[in-house]
Design a protein around this nucleic acid. Structure first.
Lengths: 115, 115
DNA sequence: ACAATATACAACCAAATGGTTGTACGTGGT
DNA sequence: ACCACGTACAACCATTTGGTTGTATATTGT
C-alpha cells in the first residue's frame, strides 16, 4: 500500500529538479555516459553523478557498464507510470463531475450535503 | 524559457509528498476547508496548512474564502499540465525509436554516430 | 609500467524542507 | 460583549538536499 506511495515520492522528487529532468530527456534519446552528461552542466562531475544516482534510484533511468564508462538510458515505462499516477488523479476529479451531474439529475435539491 | 521549468520544479515538488498528493485527491473530489483536511492527518494544523500553501503556490489547488473558512479545491488543468510534461518526455523517447528505425532502414551501417 | 580517464563515494557545508509551538486576527454563535 | 473557531504566519528545530572537494579504484592507451 505505502509501497506505491514510496515509489511516487521518489519519482516525483526525482522529477522536481530541472537538471535531472534535462538529464532524463537526454538519456531518453539514447545512452549517454555520466561524464558526457556532466560536460553539459555548469557543476562538478560529482554533482551530476549524484543526480544520475537519484534518477536511477527512482527507477527512471538505468545504467550499464561498458569498460570504464557507465552508460545511462531512460526508462519510458517508469515515466509512463509517473504519468498514470496523474491520470489517476484526473479520474478522481471526473468522479466529482459525475456527482455534480447526479445532483443536477436529482429530483430533490435538498439532497446536497456538505460532508 | 526558464519560466516553464520553474513551474515544473514547483509542481513536481508539490507532488513529491504523499500528504500533499492525498490532500490534492481530496480537494479534487470537491471543496474542503483547511481544518477539515487537517483533521484527517496525524500532524498539526499548521503543518497541513503549509502543505495546502505549497499546493496552492504550485497552482494545483486554489482557495476561496467563505466566512472564517478557507475552502480549497483542486485544479485539474494544472494536474493535466504536469501530466503533459511527462508525455512530452515520452515524445522525446519516441524520437529515439524513430532514429533507430532510420538506422535499420539505412543502407550503410557506418552512418551510426556516437555524438 | 605508467599516466590519463571514468566512475564511485565519503566528508563537509549552506540552504531548503517538513515538522513543531506560539501568537495574532477576523468571523460566528450565544 | 464575549468566547470559540478557523486561518495565517513567525520562530524555531532536525533532517534532507544540492552542491563542493578529496580520495580510491578500475580501465584504457602508450
Amino acid at each position: 500500500m505505502t509501497e506505491n506511495e514510496d515509489k511516487a515520492d521518489t519519482m516525483f522528487h526525482a522529477l522536481a529538479d530541472r537538471t535531472r529532468r534535462d538529464i532524463l530527456r537526454r538519456v531518453l534519446t539514447g545512452e549517454h555516459s555520466v561524464s558526457t552528461l556532466a560536460a553539459s552542466y555548469d557543476m562538478s562531475f560529482a554533482a551530476v553523478q549524484k543526480h544520475v544516482a537519484v534518477l536511477e534510484r527512482a527507477g527512471l533511468i538505468s545504467k550499464r557498464r561498458s569498460g570504464r564508462e557507465a552508460l545511462a538510458s531512460g526508462d519510458v515505462e517508469a515515466v509512463r507510470s509517473a504519468g498514470s499516477m496523474l491520470t489517476e488523479l484526473e479520474t478522481v476529479w471526473r468522479g466529482r463531475i459525475a456527482r455534480i451531474d447526479d445532483l443536477i439529475a436529482a429530483p430533490n435539491p435538498r439532497t446536497e450535503r456538505n460532508e
